[in-house]
């Protein structure tokens, strides 16, 4: 039986009827076409599906949509302030070469946003720990770590 719910995503309210077994990942991608959030494994191991729920990073593939009713959900689509301005994290990812195939990128950025909300000047080691729930097969992580470190500095300055 479908449950009527309201989801607050990137500040917008969506009214939906959702089957209990559908995950937040499925609802974001299939019902709302917010496809910036990816699905890489379905087991919470790769991090490609990471979104923020009430400010905390979670795996959307292991979150039932019904469980996040009434919470603030933020996806990669909600990071940039406007169509022609990027979030400092996104900017740093672009500039530092942190993006190759891009499939892990949105999840990495969301975890970076969570990390920097908890710790505004993380050490390199803390950044690496902050990415412990992510896999990337292209970059070897080095330029991603670099980008997050750069974003942290920029965000502190502004």
């Amino acid at each position: 039986m479908k449950h009527p719910i309201e989801l607050k995503i990137n500040g917008d309210i969506y009214s939906l009827a959702v089957d209990p077994w559908r995950t937040l990942n499925e609802v974001l991608r299939e019902d709302l076409h917010l496809t910036g959030t990816k699905l890489g494994c379905g087991s919470g191991d790769c991090g490609a599906c990471t979104v923020l729920v009430d400010g905390r990073s979670v795996s959307s593939c292991l979150t039932l949509a019904l469980e996040v009713q009434g919470k603030e959900i933020q996806t990669v689509e909600g990071l940039a302030p406007s169509g022609d301005t990027l979030h400092p994290i996104q900017e740093a990812f672009v500039e530092k070469g942190a993006i190759q195939c891009g499939f892990c990128t949105s999840g990495m950025e969301m975890s970076a946003a969570y990390l920097l909300s908890q710790n505004s000047s993380p050490t390199e080691q803390e950044i690496r720990e902050g990415l412990s729930g992510h896999l990337c097969r292209c970059t070897g992580y080095i330029q991603i770590v670099d980008a997050i470190s750069d974003a942290a500095q920029k965000m502190k300055q502004s």
Binding site: G44, T50, S57, V58, L62, S132
Partner: peptide, 9 residues
């Protein structure tokens, strides 16, 4: 235990 996101859930 596991990783950041799993610990958040």
């Amino acid at each position: 235990t596991a990783n950041v996101q799993i610990r958040n859930m």
